[in-house]
Design a protein around this nucleic acid. Sequence first.
DNA 1: ATGCCGGGTGGAACCCGA
Length: 277
Amino acid sequence: MKVATFNVNSIKMRLPIVLDWLAVHAPDILSLQELKGMDFPIDAFQTAGYESFIVPQKAYNGVAILVRSGRVVVDAGTSVITRLPGMEDDESARFIAIRIMAPIPCTVINIYAPNGNPMGTDKYIYKLRWLNALYEYMSGVRARGENVMVMGDFNIIPNDTDAARPDDWRGDALAQPDVRGIYRAMQYLGFMDALKVYGGQGNNPSDFYTFWDYQAGAWPRNNGIRIDHILLTPGLADRVIAAFVDRVPRGLDQPSDHTPVMVEIEEHGVASSLTMG
DNA sequence: ATGCCGGGTGGAACCCGA
C-alpha cells in the first residue's frame, strides 16, 4: 500500500501537478493540505480513479484524503472525522480522519498543523494547544491498539539536521524546543517517523527536505526544511518497504512550496490491530 | 530586513504562509 502526503498551497493552482503525480506514482492514499478554497475538483480526481474526502474552508487551510478506487475500501460503518477532538471550537479545516478496511485495516489521519508564527503571540499559543490536542488524540488511539497513520504538514522541523540553515530558524515557531518536544512525545507513544524507519535515499539529510520557500532562491540553493511527516504505529512501521521525498514536483513550473512524502507498506503480514497496533 | 514570492479575497491593498 502506497501512502503519500502533499501540501499543495491551493488545489486550484496545483491540480495539473497533482494529477500528473497521481498518474506516475499511483498511491493508494494521498493526503492533501492547504486546499485554500471551497471548490474541490472531485470530478477530476474521480476520473483519475480516486474518491475524495474533503474538509474545505474559504481562503485558508483545507485538507482532503484521496483514496484509490478499487484498491482502498473505506469503512462505511465509521464516520469521517472532520475536526480534531479537543479543538471542536476551532473552525479551521486542519484535520480529517477516515477508517479503511483494505488493503490494510487502519485509521488514516491527515493534518495541517498551525504555523504558529510569530513567537510571543496568540498564534503560537494556538499552535501548542492544537498540537497538544493532536497528541492526546493520538494517545487515545494508541491505547486502543489500532493501526494508525498520521501524516501531513506538521509545521515542525524535528531537529537541526532537518534544516539547511538551522540557525535561521532558531527564533521561529517551527523549531522551538516545546514544539520539537511534542513531536518526540508522539514517537514515545509508538508513532514511528516513516522516513527514519526506512532510512533509505542515502545519508544526506537534505534528501528529506519537504519545503523550500518561494523567496530568496531557497529552491536553487537547496535551502530547505523537513516539516511534512508520516508517522506510523509499529504494526505498519514494521512493514515499510520504501519511504522517500519526491522533490520532482518542487522543480516544476508554478510549483507548491512543498513537495510530496511517500511511504510504501507491505500489505501481507501486517499484524492484527488488536495484537500489535 | 517589517524586504524578497505566491496563494487568497475582492476588486486595492492587505492577510497569510514558513
